[in-house]
Amino acid sequence: MLTKYLTGVTTAFSPFNAHSGKIIRSFLALLPPNARSTMAIDVKMFGQSEAQKPAMLTLKFMLEDGKEMQVDVEKMKLTDIEIEVDRHSRMLKRKDELSG
């Protein structure tokens, strides 16, 4: 997954939810080791009683683009999220290469 153009990850979920919790946790595990220094990561976790509360995952991209991507965790799988992030990052990369 291309994470170079990702500047912010905001998420709220319950790890006790077998579907959304699993996807979001796996997504967070995909971020590189230095992710905390290159992007703002805000993780909020609910408890066991709020496992059915709707989970939220918002991704922010580079400032020139400023796109905020709302990920529908209920419908998308981890591979779908990866594909979406890669698609947008490749677009930004092309712009970057043309301008620079």
Binding site: P15, F16, R25, L28, P33, R36, S37, M45, G47, Q48
Partner: peptide, 22 residues
């Protein structure tokens, strides 16, 4: 840096499963 990347998920206390608050 390491502590920021550790996420407490839950606990198992004497066979009982508890969440972060527990």
């Amino acid at each position: 840096d390491g502590v920021a990347k550790l996420m407490l998920l839950g606990a198992r206390v004497e066979g009982q499963v508890m969440d972060m608050a527990g």
